[in-house]
Design a protein around this nucleic acid. Structure first.
Lengths: 183, 183
DNA sequence: ACCTTTGTACAATATAAAGTTTACAAACTT
DNA sequence: AAGTTTGTAAACTTTATATTGTACAAAGGT
């Protein structure tokens, strides 16, 4: 009876997929995104929306949404194959790279949102400062806020540099993928 | 009329708090946590649950929950002050440190969850492997999964080292807080 | 030109997360 | 020791997110 062994193996694979999904939730993406990535990963070759839908027991619509989200996050890519009409999707197979993609995608978004805000707030504060009707105490408070804003901008610049540090792979020079024996 | 200026200033402060909250959502914490942090931050000195409740227009119970969550995340601390019976809470004022605390809290949790899983899965696979009833193909698949598991463990070790890299402050040697002019 | 397949918008529903109210226990006052 | 005040737990409500079904437009095949 090999069916039982097969079932167990299948179960182990599912557990693994679930673990990948779980890991990805730490980045704030939904578990379904993680499961789709895990499923394609385990499949070892690109899959179509229909295959994913079938395999995960979810609607094709949902698969479409999720795959698009993954393309945005740079953890999946569309693959062309002669003779196949359906779109095929493949995923990043390197855990480290996936980590970096998710980490940086998140912060890229945050940085973009932040930029407008800072400029706007800065302008408002300067306008306020130039108003003649401000007393000593207000003046003081405005200055404090201007300083805060400056620090905030510096902080975001740091995050920006941090992203580069990851994306360029420099991080691996200081936190290597594999520990050497002489550790 | 200084009231108008005061209102504008208040509004600017609120915007700033909202920005802090927004930034923190990138780490997956609820916006209320961010607002509480921002509020205490702007207040420039520790606050009580009642003050927070009053200031944010939310229930004291909710404040209690949120503050407890922040204590868990290491971004707030209880402060004692003679003569004051209510608990006072203060927040980390260093953006960088807050970043690190949130980043590492998240991953510490993930790492802990992962450890059990890996051991269990590994054992299951070895058991399966030792079963005599496995054919060539299964054997192959089991081996593949064992390799995957090993890689997964290595990946998590890397994250673990990455956390140390942040917590120890070593990160700032390579991605400094302030860019030097000679950049 | 017509029919089929494929992928995505949109509205409706189901599920999960956040927040509030009520109730109660522990610490402090008097 | 009785009465307040403060902090937390549990049940409930509201709000946000995930998922599905239907409808439709674009591309492919015949």
């Amino acid at each position: 009876m090999e069916g039982k062994t097969f079932d167990k193996l299948r179960k182990a694979e599912d557990q693994f997929v679930e673990k990948i999904a779980d890991n990805m939730q730490t980045f704030g993406v939904s578990s379904t995104v993680g499961r789709v990535l895990g499923t394609i990963y385990m499949n070892r070759e690109p899959m179509t929306l229909d295959e994913l839908s079938e395999n995960l027991g979810m609607s094709k619509t949902r698969m479409s949404q999720v795959v698009r989200e993954m393309l945005d996050l740079n953890i999946a890519e569309k693959v062309f194959e002669r003779g196949v009409r359906k779109d095929l999707y493949n995923v990043e197979r390197d855990y480290y790279q996936t980590f970096i993609s998710l980490f940086t995608s998140n912060w890229h978004k945050a940085i973009n949102k932040s930029k407008m805000f800072e400029q706007k707030l800065h302008r408002e504060l300067v306008d306020l400062q130039e108003d003649e009707m401000v007393n000593e105490e207000m003046e003081q408070k405005i200055n404090e806020l201007l300083i805060e804003t400056k620090e905030w901008v510096e902080y975001y610049h740091w995050i920006s540099r941090l992203i580069d540090f990851f994306e360029s792979g420099e991080i691996f020079e200081h936190v290597p993928k594999h520990t050497t024996k002489k550790d």
